[in-house]
Simulated assay, not measured.
Amino acid sequence: MVELSEKMTTTEQAERGTSSIQLGILLAGVACLLAAPMFFYPIFLMKLLCFALFACAFNLLLGYTGLLSFGHATFFGGAAYFTAHAVKEWGLNPELGILVGVLGAAALGLVVGFVAIRRQGIYFAMITLALGQMFYFFCLQAGFTHGEDGIQSVPRGHLFGFIDLSVTSNMYYFVLAVFIIGMAVIWRFINSPFGMILKSIRENEARATSLGYSVAHYKLGAFVMSAALAGLAGGVKTLVFQFATLTDVGWQMSGEVILMTLLGGIGTLIGPIFGAGLVVTLQNYLATSDFPVTIITGVVFMVCVLLFRRGIVGEFYASRIGKKLGF
């Protein structure tokens, strides 16, 4: 018993050390991002930040709750359409347009989650995929989405009425601020008592139920939160590129965010950021080459699956914990 207690204490210390490493990396990353526009193309950086937030929102569901959704593009792309329509047709300010997108994504998450959480495992994944495809065809036929043309020429507008987001530097630091706020919300969520219960559900759902927790309610709450944050990323992405198209709601987008999360490491705070950066960078710098980007991405994914079963960042954390435990 004494040895077990000592082992548990060492494990807790190792996990706290890992959390400190994550926080240190995040702070260093923010410092680098503040200066990044001087060295990299701002549009590329803004795309990376949007998809990093999207991947972190998805990881909130998969990594911390254990639910694999194949339809998360519904919330990302749905918010993109809602924001684009609100800003362009209703003339709302960008912050209000993004709020409309987030609320719309949360509402979609509530509906989809209410239906999907009634099943587990592959059945849950298939239901989210089916509902995602239903929403895709809705966007194809709905009048406000303009079908295959999408909503184009979306104005960026003035943030709070006086900050001109058509200026690239203003837009970049706005996207960075949204990303930091989103990550702060995720960090607080997973480190709250609610987040602890989600982790227990992921590890042993039957035991969490036996302890008296309403598992369905907690799953639904996590699903809605994940959908809202994915919507935040989608709404901001619409203002960056000034359009919303069917690509944002297609099943391929759901596949991409799964790939990003797995590459970086599920259940880690910064793993999805790393994975999103890797995928977006490959797409950006290999887009003009003759070699198909999808093949390169597939090879990278295969190597990571074979060599880094927990993802790149996940394996790094595991090795740190292993060393502290003496393995």
Rank of each mutant, 00 (worst) to 15 (best):
L129I: 07
P94N: 01
Q141K: 12
V102W: 00
F138L: 12
E95M: 03
H85V: 10
F138H: 12
A125S: 09
A105H: 03
Q141R: 10
N93Y: 07
A86E: 01
G97Y: 00
A130H: 12
F137A: 12
F124L: 12
I98W: 03
H146G: 14
G97V: 02
A107P: 04
L92Q: 02
G91E: 04
E89T: 13
M126A: 06
P94Q: 07
L140A: 13
G109W: 05
I127Y: 08
F144V: 01
V100C: 09
M134D: 10
F138M: 14
G101F: 03
G91F: 07
W90V: 09
F135S: 04
G101S: 08
G132K: 05
L110G: 04
L140E: 15
Y123R: 11
L108A: 09
G113S: 03
V111M: 13
T145A: 14
G97E: 04
A84D: 01
A106Q: 08
G121E: 07
F124S: 02
G113F: 10
A84W: 04
V87H: 01
L108K: 03
V111F: 11
L92F: 03
F124H: 03
H146M: 12
W90D: 05
G147C: 13
A86R: 03
T145M: 05
I122L: 15
L140G: 09
G97L: 02
V115Y: 11
R119S: 14
I117S: 08
M134F: 15
I117C: 11
Y123S: 12
L129M: 14
L129P: 08
G132V: 10
G143I: 14
T128L: 04
A105E: 08
T83K: 04
V111I: 15
A84Y: 05
A106D: 09
V111H: 03
C139E: 05
A125D: 12
L129Y: 08
M126L: 15
F114D: 11
T83Q: 03
A130I: 11
